[in-house]
Amino acid sequence: MIPLSHYLLLSAVIFSVGVVGVMTRRNAIVVFMCIELMLNSVNLTLVAFSSYLGDATGQMLVFFVMVVAAAEAAVGLAIVISLFRNKQTVNIDDINILKW
């Protein structure tokens, strides 16, 4: 039996990897993948807690998170394509018309 803390530690690490990725990567699609990583680490936490507490609410939320993540990916990629058509780049440093 693997204790709860292992799951929590793993998901905290994955979450941090996601956050660091969002902060440091410059390609909009890679940033987006890092955000998906964050969402999935949350799913891991929720499932771990849910099984630890013996309560199904957490697992229910996981399904909704997956649905929302899929919808977000669809919308996000569409927006990236629309931006690419205008600017021929997906590098975040070049997306800088609007500032201050």
């Binding site: 987006f32 949350v42 957490g58 977000e72 629309s82 931006l83 205008n86």
Partner: peptide, 30 residues
């Protein structure tokens, strides 16, 4: 160009903060 740039920025900030919020929800649930 402005409109699609705004849209991408909104998406990235929005998705990031909802991810953080979700982690908060999972902690409170736990």
């Amino acid at each position: 160009k402005n409109s699609s740039e705004a849209s991408l920025k909104y998406l990235l900030y929005g998705a990031f903060s909802s991810g953080v919020m979700l982690y908060g929800i999972s902690i409170i649930y736990g």
